[in-house]
Write a protein that binds this DNA or RNA. Structure first.
Lengths: 173, 173
DNA sequence: CAGAACGTTCAATCAAGACTGAACAAACGA
DNA sequence: TCGTTTGTTCAGTCTTGATTGAACGTTCTG
């Protein structure tokens, strides 16, 4: 482990906490995700509370939340009564699923008002167009998520060319 | 206008308010977007305050926010001293831009910790893979947004086939 | 069985940030 | 110039929801 690993990892955990809030999850839930992302082995209930310095009540509530969201899993450890948790294999796809769900809700709202309300032609055109666009994006993300899910765990990334090119573009934020 | 247009539109405006919160925007900002989406003509500062029943202070703050976000525009009306506002032409693409920005922030956090921290091989693989996935999604959404932006306003949607198929998939949420 | 360790629940507290409204400055018309 | 209309700012209030911590039920161990 490098010298500044601790800081970097702590920053990462906190950043995940911040970003969780954009996903309708409490900050602590995000930090748990961060912690489990970095941890090779499953972490115990107590260890999470301790390393995050939060109450056991919070750990209980937020692990339940994350299990319901499909982002973490319980894991029993032989010889230990404590609950253990590990990141779900498709945790980051689940995260995208939450984005998609919001997008679909938006699309639904727009499509509904476009169909059922007596708006002007201009507004109707605008709404219909937006709904179509949202549907496109939603469907495309789903497709990517499925493709990703289908990839074997130890994949050597055979389709690197396309990905690399696009990743570079994304880098320029 | 249909009988229940008012209710439907009011619901839409409120729904946009709710959804705005997931975009790091105040609820009132979302409602303004909803209002302007439905309105053929630009709406005056006063009209927005009145129809939303919010203070002028809130209108001022939130219109500024939305202008900064590129989602609405100021529009002067001859003979009226009030400010007027209309939806930006690419308002819904801007909304997606906010999602992309969050995604990139997430990708950045993950990529940084993958590069710089002394995590286990498993964690490193997981992080790298997640970063690649996020980059893919981000880049893909960008591409879709650009394609959408390039479409002429009165487009008859020549590429309906592909879109329709995918829209159906998205419908099944 | 008694005691301890564990996880859950929920009432109370706390924090973050949205919203208001009054004070203010600028632009306008009389 | 004076009064009016308009938009901005910001201190104070209010709302929402996260977090705590104590009480509780369960399970294990001695």
């Amino acid at each position: 482990m490098l010298d500044r690993s601790h800081d970097i990892e702590a920053t990462f955990v906190e950043e995940m906490g911040i970003l969780a809030q954009a996903d309708d999850l409490p900050r602590i839930a995000g930090r748990i995700i961060g912690l489990l992302t970095l941890s090779e082995a499953p972490l115990s209930f107590g260890a999470i509370a301790e390393r995050l310095r939060v109450s056991r009540g919070s750990v209980s509530t937020n692990t339940r939340l994350l299990i319901e969201a499909g982002m973490i899993e319980k894991a029993a450890m032989p010889g230990d009564r404590q609950d253990y948790f590990r990141l779900a294999a498709d945790a980051h796809q689940m995260q995208l699923q939450r984005m998609v769900a919001r997008l679909d809700r938006l699309r639904h709202a727009v499509a509904t008002v476009a169909e059922r309300s007596g708006t002007s032609a201009t507004a109707h055109e605008r709404l219909t167009r937006a709904a179509g666009f949202y549907a496109d994006v939603s469907a495309t993300i789903r497709a990517l998520a499925e493709r990703e899910a289908a990839r074997p765990q130890d994949d050597q990334r055979p389709e690197i060319s396309g990905r690399a090119a696009r990743s570079d573009a994304a880098e320029a934020t």
